[in-house]
């Protein structure tokens, strides 16, 4: 089975969020970048498990400049066989999808796995857009994924229910919590990652369909109103009469 996993390079979950250039650009100064957790913990690890059980290859693809390479090496250290970096600065989610689809289109991947969203743009767009551009079926927000006899079976949480779906390969799946457990790369993996193939391809032209023109931070919270524990019932009263939320 040939598996392609989309790997996004994102600020660490604890990174300070600030903007420069009159609030038009994310300020990455001093920020540690990581593999997007959904891509790493769920998509990549499940891809590796499927490969280990059934044979095949796991290739990762990242759209971005050379700064993303340490993140790509991390994915290789966790166990991917090889990696592709599309060398361009994507303008929006659509641009990322166009770059991924342009690379994947004639490579015969059986399974394309994406995280359910990135923790910086949170768009949930790239997976379904890649599916559309490759004219492939798409299973969104899968929490379990198995493949047998050329057919994928997945579970999804839908409106509080669990749905079991089936789809013949090839297809695109977006991966959410439940699908796999995080894997910490070991020393051997980290050493091996240094020499695994990382192919750099140039991007294709893509029209920009949307842009984030300005960012803002939420207004600071008002001071918390404390209620003594022995009068805890007062909280319910205040939520009703003052906050008016119950």
């Amino acid at each position: 089975m040939k598996i392609l996993v989309l790997i996004s390079h994102v600020p660490d979950t604890t990174a300070r969020i600030a903007f420069t250039n009159d609030n038009t650009t994310y300020d990455a100064t001093g920020v540690q970048f990581i593999v997007n957790p959904y891509d790493e913990w769920y998509a990549l690890v499940r891809g590796l498990e499927l490969k280990e059980a059934q044979g095949g290859t796991v290739t990762t693809i990242t759209v971005g400049g050379a700064v993303t390479e340490p993140t790509i090496r991390k994915a290789l250290a966790i166990g991917a066989d090889d990696a592709v970096r599309v060398d361009c600065e994507p303008k929006d989610g659509h641009d990322v999808a166009v770059q991924v689809a342009a690379f994947a289109k004639d490579k015969g991947f059986d399974l394309v796995l994406a995280g359910k969203e990135t923790i910086d743009h949170n768009g949930s767009q790239v997976g379904p857009m890649v599916a559309e551009l490759l004219d492939l079926p798409f299973i969104s927000l899968a929490t379990k994924l198995d493949v047998a006899n050329g057919t994928a079976t997945a579970e999804r949480d839908v409106r509080g229910d669990v749905e079991v779906v089936e789809c013949p390969l090839p297809l695109v799946v977006s991966c959410a919590k439940g699908m796999a457990e995080q894997r910490i790369p070991n020393m051997r993996g980290i050493m091996a990652a240094r020499t695994k193939p990382l192919q750099v391809v140039s991007g294709t032209a893509c029209e920009t369909l949307s842009t984030s023109v300005k960012f803002e931070l939420p207004p600071p919270k008002q001071a918390v109103k404390m209620i003594p524990a022995d009068d805890a019932g007062k909280l319910i009263e205040l939520l009703h009469t003052e906050a008016k939320v119950i």
Binding site: D92, H94, G123, P128, L133, S140, R156, L209
Partner: peptide, 24 residues
Amino acid sequence: SHDDTGKAVAPRVAARLKAGEVAG
């Protein structure tokens, strides 16, 4: 709506029509 179905269909429609999308 940016719900289970909307998250799967809206980006596909946007890509198909080459229309810009605001997700969420």
